[in-house]
Amino acid sequence: MQDIALQPGQILARGVARHLRLHDFVSVEEFVPVRGLRMDVFALGPKGEFWVVECKSSRVDFTSDSKWQGYLEWGDRYFWAVDADFPTELLPAETGLIIADGYDAEIIRMGPETKLAPARRKVLMQKFARHAASRLQGFRDPGVSALSGPC
């Protein structure tokens, strides 16, 4: 598979998703919990836990992101995913850290756990399932995506 069409953040997201699979997490990339927020990787763990992972490909990419704190309330843990050359001292110490490339990743620092409220967890579980199913259907039958509305 060539990475020609993938942006640097998407390449990191792929490595993160591959690594999280080893921990029995499934994930959706570019997940929108509410209008105005788009998570790079939203992962669902084996015990129903949600992890939010924001992928940053450069210092400029990180410093231009002014809404990352808005993602904290949408997961049980929050992580940054960056490549090995990223200046990690820029990242808040109270968040998780993943070093990634397009093929794998390593969790360097576990993000602190902040449990989601049960009502929010239920809504996110339904959105996650619908989003994943819709994306799968789009791969299986690309013509159907033009017929359907948003999830």
Rank of each mutant, 00 (worst) to 15 (best):
M1Q: 10
M1E: 13
M1A: 13
D3K: 09
A5P: 00
A5L: 09
Q7K: 15
Q7P: 02
R21Q: 12
F25M: 11
F25D: 10
V26R: 15
V28N: 12
E29S: 13
V32E: 14
V34A: 12
R38I: 10
D40R: 08
P46G: 13
P46R: 13
E49D: 15
E49C: 07
F50A: 11
W51M: 11
V52Y: 05
E54T: 07
C55E: 01
C55H: 02
C55G: 02
S57D: 10
S58R: 07
V60F: 02
V60W: 03
F62R: 02
D65A: 09
W68E: 07
W68P: 01
Q69E: 14
Q69P: 02
Q69T: 14
L72N: 06
L72R: 15
L72W: 12
W74Y: 15
W74V: 03
G75C: 10
G75N: 10
D76W: 05
R77P: 02
Y78I: 02
W80P: 02
W80A: 04
V82Y: 00
D85C: 02
F86V: 04
P87W: 00
E89Y: 04
E94W: 03
E94A: 13
T95R: 12
A100R: 01
A100E: 04
G102K: 08
G102F: 05
A105S: 12
I108R: 15
I108A: 05
I108P: 02
R109K: 15
M110L: 14
E113G: 00
T114C: 07
T114F: 09
L116D: 08
A117P: 02
A117Q: 13
R121P: 02
R121F: 00
L124Y: 10
M125D: 04
K127M: 11
A129V: 08
Q137Y: 09
R140E: 13
P142D: 09
P142H: 09
A146G: 03
L147A: 14
L147Q: 13
P150Y: 04
